[in-house]
Write a protein that binds this DNA or RNA. Structure first.
Lengths: 482, 482
DNA sequence: ATGGATTTGTCCGTATGTATG
DNA sequence: TCATACATACGGACAAATCCA
């Protein structure tokens, strides 16, 4: 609109004439509409790299021809177009291609189902009612100061050192992770961190074992980087170690503390077997611990990573669940054996840190004041209430017609429904009743012959009061009046 | 520290004894230092999933043995360790592995040269003295509100729609880029965005042409994803089109508006030839426009992308230069023909947005108020002053002994030095004189037989007053008293 | 709401290249 | 060849309007 793509540098047309013609066309074509303020003489001159004179002359010309109006010391404004009846040529000309600058309706496919539901049991929402808004604002504002100008520049590509120190301390205390700050790598998203892992490990074997069913991000991400994703069966106590030995892989992703989506805990005996497998094949284990802090009854489950010192475990965590996804702060803990590989990747690629330095510093301050610990406890208590309410509601309304899988932790349970209806029928009935609950079938990388009818019931996002009525409505939709 | 990795679940040791032993060891080993406050009885019990009783018993035991001290209604605090002379066993034992929680000196290689220099002509610093601190804080605080809780959740994986609209408008006006918001993809870093491009285009040809010399990030990133990076010669007016036809490639990365590092502008004729090449081989052009806003004399150079409608150009830009790198907001503009590929990548991989949603929203508000335009002009004026001062200083001190390459735009110029000394000597002399100026030799993917002695002189980061003395010092270091 | 900083239309002195006499 | 006039462009200056703390 303002920056004319073509400009006759030293040709015959004087600059002010070119400018005048360009702006006249913009107005006639309707791209500059009535009452629109033109850029000030000085601004446009500056933008175009000219002196004010040609701009002024162009504006004067437009002014004298009545295309624009001058409000002294306020600006130039586009006049209403001359009446079409008087100049029919312009009117017909301006019809087809007008308003090119209007937003075009998006052709992008809907990736998230954002329809409003009366009862939203989405599998992993957050409840932000307890988010420490004022404290976060205060700490952010303290981070962003003139006196600390350098904090606005690029930070450590691995993540802010002080922040990594805080995370190392936190992980040691609350998740039993044994690591130094040097082993921690910050990133803005899971995909990015996993991509780094795939680059670090991809020189030899390009296979990754994943839990089936499980969190599909691992399979998807590594596939994008040329890996083959091998589904590994899930037993009652976690991934099947036997299969790991049968197949020629050296990398596996697991969620031992709270399996996604089925919620099982891998017992210590199996954990030791898994670590032994990694040592035997000289391979690596990716430990997904995205909800490790959120265990509601019984003892928290320490990480696999800290069970045996210096084991080949890559631990993945982040602040999306404990704080907010919008901050964009995730991390991973690399085993010592991968540090050199990581450093050479840094050197070769000149990687920048993707996670905002300001948010890293703010989180660091938040943790240094011991506020994270406090906030996690608050959130856990809140989610525990919801969790308990959900279980009570399911028991009350469904009784023997459904059973709950994977309780006591995380942000959802699975509801196994004993119904004659097909999964698709159940889905539709839920939608019609205004209840959001997605089927767990998409978590299978390789679906079994008969899919169990299991549905996600997320409890973290929905408000406490809506849980019981929501479950009641869902039960009635599926089983008629109860 | 607090969460014991090993816990004898139902073994012989009572819980309080395990806890007592654990904490005693922590204190003796020095991991819990004097005057550190222990977690409160209730908190620790909650954390461990126990009742308060065993925790209280453990603390009582520690108290009675003098390891900790109780301050009623205040907390338990670690006492000073018993005197080593009295208990020599502990002292000797605590020497080697003590203070495990202390920050370990990093083994990571120095990636950025962060030594303090008296005169810092780093090639691409920012001057944050004019950063709109208060306005940014205000807008950020307005973005982060209880009433807009949802903004804390995951956002649109492509980037916030309203923000993309603002970027589209901005690019059209100030860079001559023609695009709809649908074509814009937000990301937190260049590497991540380029990785997406490499995944989108990597199904067929895995080759990328890059300017030689040029910005090595393109070669490095695509190499990591299995591409071969082919150096293409640089002519006086930009990349050599002839070579593109000779080699079997279908992807090239260029910086037409201000070539990095040599600062040349690709003339319109060559731009059209380049676009024609892309059409002929059915390939793509990556246009790097990271400093397109910063042209100091003469007219701004409109983007290659907007020269011909619907051309196969991927435009790359970001807010690191115009605002601050620490925000972590970059973007690219995809051609229409790549949108479907991008969408299926989104669907398959379940990509999350990496750039912080809060910063996107804040930037959006900033742009909606027209403040970005204002800020860019301010920064450009500031950098122009520095640019002009640098050129004057070089002329004044070096005279005929050096010439300047690539002026009038960006954040650096190249100084070609006519000296008998080797590059390494010049480097060392500059360092000894307290002047930071890196050689341009690293920008060659494939160095020529004789490397010209060219040095980066960045002017954006250094303060205006230091420019002339800095150049003076540098000249004297290299040529003796002048 | 109120004062100070910034922005804005307008005006003016000057410089340069070209055409004219 | 020289002086003059004109069109075009540059860089400031002024005072009112507007924005912002």
């Amino acid at each position: 609109m303002l920056l004319t793509p073509k400009w006759d540098e030293n040709g015959d047309e004087p600059q002010y004439v070119q400018l005048y013609t360009f702006m006249k066309n913009e107005i006639v074509a309707g791209r500059l509409t009535e009452q629109t303020r033109l850029p000030s003489v000085r601004k446009l001159a500056d933008l175009l790299g000219l002196s004010t004179t040609p701009v002024e002359m162009a504006y004067q010309q437009l002014l004298s021809e009545g295309f624009i109006q001058s409000r002294p010391r306020s600006g130039y404004f586009v006049e209403a177009l001359p009446d079409p009846e008087v100049k029919p040529g312009i009117a017909t000309n301006s019809e087809p291609g007008q308003h090119e600058s209007q937003p075009v309706p998006s052709k992008r496919p809907l990736l998230r189902d954002d329809k409003p539901y009366m009862y939203d049991f989405h599998m992993s929402q957050n409840d932000f009612s307890l988010f420490p808004y004022t404290m976060w604002r205060r700490l952010y504002n303290q981070t962003l100061r003139l006196e600390q100008q350098e904090d606005l520049f690029y930070g450590d590509p691995q993540g802010e050192p002080g922040f990594r120190q805080q995370i190392a301390d936190y992980l040691r205390r609350y998740r039993g992770v044994a690591c130094s700050p040097d082993q921690i790598v910050i990133g803005a998203d899971q995909f990015g961190l996993l991509s780094l892992v795939s680059l670090m490990l991809g020189t030899t074997h390009k296979h990754i074992g994943v839990e089936n069913p499980g969190y599909l991000l691992y399979a998807n991400t590594f596939r994008q980087h040329g890996y083959e994703a091998v589904p590994i069966s899930l037993e009652e106590d976690g991934i099947c170690i036997g299969e790991l030995y049968e197949i020629n892989i050296r990398l596996v992703a697991v969620s031992p503390s709270h399996q996604y989506p089925r919620g099982m805990i891998m017992p210590v005996s199996k954990r030791l077997q898994l670590l032994e497998w990694a040592q035997t094949v000289n391979g690596y284990i990716i430990e997904d611990d995205y909800d490790g802090e959120f265990r509601y009854h019984g003892r928290p489950i320490p990480s696999l990573q800290g069970l045996v010192p210096n084991s080949n475990v890559i631990y993945m965590g982040g602040f999306a669940q404990v704080m907010a996804p919008a901050l964009g702060v995730w991390y991973m803990v690399l085993p010592e054996t991968l540090l050199e590989v990581y450093y050479s990747l840094l050197r070769e690629t000149l990687l920048e840190q993707s996670s905002s330095r300001l948010h890293q510093r703010t989180l660091q301050a938040f943790m240094e004041k011991g506020l994270l610990e406090k906030h996690v406890r608050k959130m856990r208590n809140l989610y525990r209430k919801k969790h308990d309410a959900l279980l009570a509601a399911v028991q009350k309304h469904f009784g023997e017609r459904a059973s709950v899988i994977g309780k006591d932790a995380g942000f959802h349970v699975l509801l196994r429904v004993y119904s004659e209806r097909t999964e698709e029928e159940l889905k539709q009935l839920a939608i019609q009743a205004g209840v959001r609950t997605s089927s767990a079938s998409f978590t299978w990388l390789l679906p079994p012959d008969t899919l169990p009818k299991e549905f996600f019931l997320g409890f973290s996002g929905i408000s406490l009061e809506k849980i019981d009525p929501g479950i009641s409505v869902l039960c009635r939709a599926w089983f008629g009046d109860s």
